[in-house]
Amino acid sequence: MSRELFALILLLAPVGCGSDAEPTDPTAPTATPQTPTDPPPTVVPSFAPHVRFKGGAVYANDLARGLELDRDEVCLELGVSDCATEVHKVALGGVDPYDGGVYKPLPEAPVTAPIALDRIAVSACSLRAERDFAAPSSAAFYGALAQGDTSTEARGSVVMALYDRLLLRNPTTAELEAVVGLYDELDGDELPRRWSKLACIAIATTTEAAFY
């Protein structure tokens, strides 16, 4: 499918965000864009590329807002303790002066940091998908897929929404096609549900999502 056709289909596709819930944060996007936005052909790398890790708390807050989840349900280890601000707090750049004697953030991300970040995203994305597939009529992202529409257009609409909500921008055409195409790499049962989780996880754990 050509990029032009793909974009046209998206233009014509219905909005994939069927949630009744309205974003409460005024800075949150309020409408799902319908076309990918390609970058300029030439991008100049920063000569002084300084970035900062969001840290667990901010990351989880962003996920909660983007996926329309309550902050407290984003990720609870063993159902009882918050991943970002308790269990994986130090690995994710936090301090733990009173209990762990950790007075300064670790100088470098430990091996467990990206794993912990994945856990938060896996938890939140899985919850979002399960919830939407359980109640398609009030789904936030995956309503169409939950109702059996696994078309390229439906998936494209979901990807547009995920980029808008999680990265606050439109995907490029290449990004859109890549995430939509992930569906075709999956075998077995429950492909819509599984793809819904994986698309979310892949986008939510990009470096762009975790650093600023």
Binding site: V43, S46, P49, A109, A199, E208
Partner: peptide, 24 residues
């Protein structure tokens, strides 16, 4: 999902093209 992120999404993102050489 990780392979998609590591091999396609991140390398192709404008964020990585601009800031990708950051030590962090």
């Amino acid at each position: 999902a990780r392979a998609l992120r590591n091999d396609v999404l991140d390398p192709g993102s404008q964020f990585e093209k601009i800031f990708g050489q950051a030590q962090r």
